[in-house]
Simulated scan of single mutants.
Amino acid sequence: MPRHLNLRQIEAFKAVIENGTISRAADILHISQPAMSKLIAHLEFDTKLRLFDRVKGRLAPTEQGMRLYDEVGRIFAGVRQVENAVDAIRREEQGRLAVGVLPALANSFIQKTTTAFLRDRRNVFCSVQSLSSQWIVDWLIARRLDAGLIGAGYDNPYVTLEPLMEHPLVCIMPRDHELSDRAQIEPQDLDGTPFVALTPETIVGHRVEEMFETYRVKPDIVLVANAASIVCEFVASGLGVSLAHPLMVSGLEHRLSVRRFAPEILYNFQLCRSTDSRNARLIEAYAHELREAASQISGSLLVER
């Protein structure tokens, strides 16, 4: 006779789907492989559903399995909301700050900022998550974060947004590039030059593309990427040049040459927090460190030659 489903079976099912194999799922749940296999077998028996196909010794989720996984995801999302509420209550009693940062700034910039923030606040626990701007906003609304650093162009009535660290884009290039002899780079300097571009779907990529069209410049696009960190790495490796916000270059100064670019293409990030944030004092202190670190990095990159 089928038994009632239990949470351990659901946890095992979720772990197998997300980790791909019985062995990895067993490691995640700290149980043996035979015990994991037994949980999955009992779940299939109790539900009368074929949740997995056995393909060359591996488990491949069936359509029924994926439909069940979607439902399980909703259940665990509800559990996470409760955990988030508990965490928010704890943060009201303790010195805790949860920060989200978009990948473009998940480099030495955020490390320097957070280290400076914690230096005189030994009683504060800080967590930093690298997430897309949209996820940061969603997590702020769900109270999983206290503050976030996101890109320009995002808006949401449930969060407070403050433009931060506006700066013209700079031209970045390999250390030995022929353009590194110039103090300032202009559009015509990039005509026919190997160029590593951000996708036009990003705000920076779109503005750079518009500038090229305005000045009738056609660089040799050798690679397109959707993240500034990828662009910077390929430029540092010698593939070409690019345009980026100075803070996106943080940590790569020793591998890149950075030059002013004219005409100015301004770009800013945004500090965001929930509209009813209860951690305002720590958020303001963190914002101060953001501005200080940004000023230092931008200044050091653009020292007059």
Rank of each mutant, 00 (worst) to 15 (best):
Ile136Tyr: 04
Val159Cys: 07
Leu43Lys: 11
Gln33Thr: 15
Ala12Trp: 10
Asn19Arg: 12
Ala85Cys: 05
Glu18Ala: 08
Asp27Pro: 00
Phe125Tyr: 13
Asn6Pro: 10
Gln81Trp: 00
Gln270Trp: 03
Leu256Tyr: 00
Glu83Leu: 01
Asn6Cys: 10
Asn156Met: 01
Phe269Trp: 13
Arg8Pro: 05
Ala35Cys: 11
Asn107Gln: 12
Ser37Ile: 05
Asp181Ile: 07
Thr114Met: 08
Tyr267Met: 10
Asp53Asn: 10
Pro61Tyr: 09
Val241Lys: 04
Ala293Phe: 05
Lys218Trp: 01
Ser295Asp: 10
Arg74Gln: 15
Ala12Lys: 12
Arg260Trp: 02
Glu11Val: 07
Arg91Cys: 02
Lys38Ile: 12
Thr62Ser: 11
Glu93Gly: 05
Gln188Val: 09
Val86Lys: 04
Arg24Asp: 12
Val101Arg: 09
Leu266Ile: 01
Glu178His: 09
Asp87Phe: 01
Ala183His: 09
Leu49Glu: 14
Met165Thr: 13
Asp220Ser: 13
Glu304Leu: 05
Arg119Tyr: 09
Gln188His: 12
Arg122Ser: 12
Phe269Gly: 08
Leu290Gly: 09
Ile265Trp: 01
Gln134His: 08
Tyr69Trp: 09
Val258Asn: 03
Asp155Phe: 06
Ile89Arg: 13
Arg91Asn: 06
Leu266Gln: 03
Tyr215Leu: 03
Trp139Arg: 15
Phe76Asp: 02
Gln188Pro: 00
Leu190Ser: 05
Ser257His: 03
Glu83Gln: 08
Gln64Pro: 07
Val258Tyr: 01
Ala262Val: 06
Arg143Ser: 03
Ser274Glu: 01
Arg54His: 11
Ala15Leu: 10
Ser37Val: 06
Leu105Tyr: 14
Ala41Phe: 11
Asp120Glu: 14
Asn123Val: 03
Gly153Thr: 05
Leu223Ser: 13
Ile150Gly: 10
Ala152Tyr: 03
Leu164His: 08
Pro2Ala: 15
Leu239Gly: 01
Gly192Cys: 03
Val235Ser: 05
Ala98Thr: 10
Ile283Tyr: 00
Leu271Pro: 05
Arg278Ala: 04
Ala225Val: 11
Ile141Ser: 01
Val55Trp: 06
Arg260Asn: 04
Asp176Asn: 13
Gln64Met: 07
Gly192Asn: 03
Phe109Trp: 12
Glu92Phe: 05
Glu209Met: 13
Ala183Met: 06
Gln94Val: 04
Ile221Glu: 06
Leu68Met: 14
Ala60Phe: 07
Ile265Lys: 00
Glu210Gln: 15
Ala236Gln: 03
Ile28Met: 13
Ile172Glu: 01
Gly78Thr: 04
Asp155Arg: 13
Glu93Ser: 14
Gln129Phe: 14
Arg144Trp: 00
Pro200Gln: 09
Thr62Tyr: 09
Phe76Tyr: 15
Asp53Val: 05
Leu243Cys: 04
Ser298Val: 10
Ala88Asp: 08
Thr115Asp: 13
Arg278Leu: 11
Tyr286Phe: 15
Arg119Gly: 07
Val217Ile: 15
Glu162Gly: 00
Phe261Gln: 02
Asp120Met: 08
Gln296Glu: 14
Val128Phe: 02
Ser229Arg: 11
Asp120Val: 07
Arg207Tyr: 03
Ala294Glu: 14
Val241Pro: 01
Ile136Asn: 11
